[in-house]
Design a protein around this nucleic acid. Structure first.
Length: 168
DNA sequence: AGACTGATTGGCT
DNA sequence: GCCAATCAGTCTT
């Protein structure tokens, strides 16, 4: 069953662990539909979170994170990797989760490459899109681990050390 | 096992 | 200009 607004319009710290084990569905067209299990992700929470892009304020790039949950935020990093983020929370509350792992694929760059993401996915809506959406699992995953987030050494300890990376 | 580097674009200072 | 929510390949302990 496709996840809806009531799932995504919650605080990112509630949504993140609930997404573990859920199914990411990608329709590549021509009948090629593939399903992946979400195994690793990170939470980015609000302008005060110095690791979150929204800490730089509301810009054309971060705009989508200020919307209600269920939109896709993609951005290019290091000139070659598209990072897949799912917006959570309510209006004017910039939050998102970064999908870092699906199935046995480790690393957000590989995820974006496998899913063939590009700029056109910016602002895609998970509830109406015909090429990407998320489906629920019957039982929540209770057996997961957390750790500090990856690649944010520029943030102060207060934010750098928060255990907002979730993985199975 | 750990350190370093090239690839390559776009947003922000 | 600078450098980033990265990865793969290569070089150094």
């Amino acid at each position: 069953m496709k996840l809806d607004a009531s799932f995504f319009n919650r605080d990112v710290l509630e949504v993140a662990p609930d997404l573990l084990g859920c199914t990411l569905v990608r329709d590549f067209g021509n009948g090629n539909i593939q399903r992946f299990t979400i195994t690793e992700l990170e939470a980015y929470r609000g302008e005060e979170d110095l690791a979150c892009h929204a800490s730089k304020g509301r810009t054309p790039r971060t705009e989508i994170m200020y919307h209600t949950g269920g939109y896709i935020y993609v951005y290019l990093i290091y000139g070659m990797y598209w990072m897949l983020n799912l917006v959570t929370g309510s209006n004017d509350e910039p939050q998102a989760v970064l999908i870092r792992g699906i199935n046995d694929i480790k690393g957000p760059g590989k995820v974006g490459r496998l899913l063939e993401l590009d700029k056109s996915f910016y602002g895609e809506n998970l509830f109406t899109s015909n090429r990407i959406w998320i489906e629920a699992i019957s039982k929540p995953i209770f057996d997961y681990q957390t750790s500090p987030r990856i690649g944010i050494d520029y943030a102060s300890d207060e934010w750098r050390l928060k255990p907002w990376r979730y993985f199975i």
